[in-house]
Simulated assay, not measured.
Amino acid sequence: MSVNLESLPLMENEYKLTPEQIDSYQKDGHIFLRNVMSQDEVDQYGPIISDLVMQKNYHDKPISERDTYGKAFIQVGNLWKMSEQVARYVLAKRFANIAADLMGVDGVRIYHDQALFKEPGGGHTPWHQDQIYWPLEGNKTITMWMPLVPVPEEVGTMTFASGSYHKGFISKVEISDESHRTLGEYIQGKNIPQVNYGAMAAGDATFHAGWTLHSAPGNPTDLARKVMTIIYYADGTRVAEPDSNARRNDLAGWLPGCKGGDVAVSPLNPLVYKR
């Protein structure tokens, strides 16, 4: 989709958070924010992102023939490197400012973006922790999860295990049927409260910490659940020694040229907000 870059909104203005919202995030490891983008902004960026995702969709099998992970969504990362128009969305100061405020840090870098489109009939997203994949030290990591279309309650937004990120690393099991079973049992056994925010409008967003346990149901409707995510980490974060194939792959793909102990900076990780 060809759109003049200069006609797209910059989204540099601040989204004001209250002290109560910041406290809530830092306690629970997740938060729901309304109208992070206006409907006009969604109308301009949504079709551009959707068109690019469908161009880059790598699935060549029907949903019924895929594994659990493949059934969960069409997944495309680093769209910002593929399109100047999408880069204007991903690198938006407004989103990065929210991420910095919630984490209580002075600056944030992009780890990567990721489109997660759950197709009609798409399967559930098993319980998992994002940061088992990320070779990043500490807990100052956060993901913005933003639907580009309305997400009715029956389609399913994410469910979060409140406060679970304070535990840090819980299990090395990658996202799978096994992670859904074992982490689900962990949540039940520890009586960890689960929160689902219900229906979301296009342009609403949730933010969750990298260690926050979360899952999402399948999509029983005839409409795709189109979601764009952006992962941020605090400026100055160091690279963790990769202790799994997943982290070794992420290190090579998302932090090229970096090694364990380095400050996490590469051409793929621009500083998108600094106080």
Rank of each mutant, 00 (worst) to 15 (best):
Val105Gln: 10
Ser171Gln: 03
Ala72Lys: 13
Pro150Met: 02
Asn78Glu: 12
Leu116Lys: 06
Gln114Met: 14
Val151Trp: 08
Arg109Leu: 07
Gly184Gln: 09
Ala161Ser: 07
Ala87Phe: 14
Ser83Lys: 06
His128Phe: 09
Glu153Met: 09
Gly189Trp: 08
Gly77Leu: 08
Pro193Glu: 11
Gly189Cys: 10
Lys81Ile: 03
Arg181Tyr: 15
Pro193Trp: 14
Thr141Ala: 07
Thr125Asp: 00
Val108Ile: 11
Arg94Met: 05
His208Met: 11
Phe169Lys: 07
Asn97Trp: 15
Pro147Val: 01
Asn78Phe: 12
Met103Pro: 12
Ala100Arg: 05
Ala100Leu: 08
Gly138Trp: 13
Gly189Asn: 15
Met103Ser: 13
Val173Phe: 08
Val76Glu: 10
Tyr165Ser: 04
Glu153Ser: 08
Gly156Leu: 08
Trp211Asp: 07
Gln131Leu: 09
Gln85Lys: 10
Trp145Gly: 01
Val195Ser: 10
Gly189Asp: 11
His128Lys: 02
His214Lys: 06
Gln194Leu: 15
Lys140Pro: 00
Gly77Trp: 07
Trp145Thr: 00
Gly203Asp: 09
Ile110Thr: 02
Ser179His: 11
Ser162Glu: 13
Pro126Ala: 08
Gln75Leu: 14
Val108Gln: 08
Ser162Lys: 12
Asn191Asp: 14
Leu183Trp: 14
Ile142Lys: 01
Gly156Asp: 03
Ile192Trp: 12
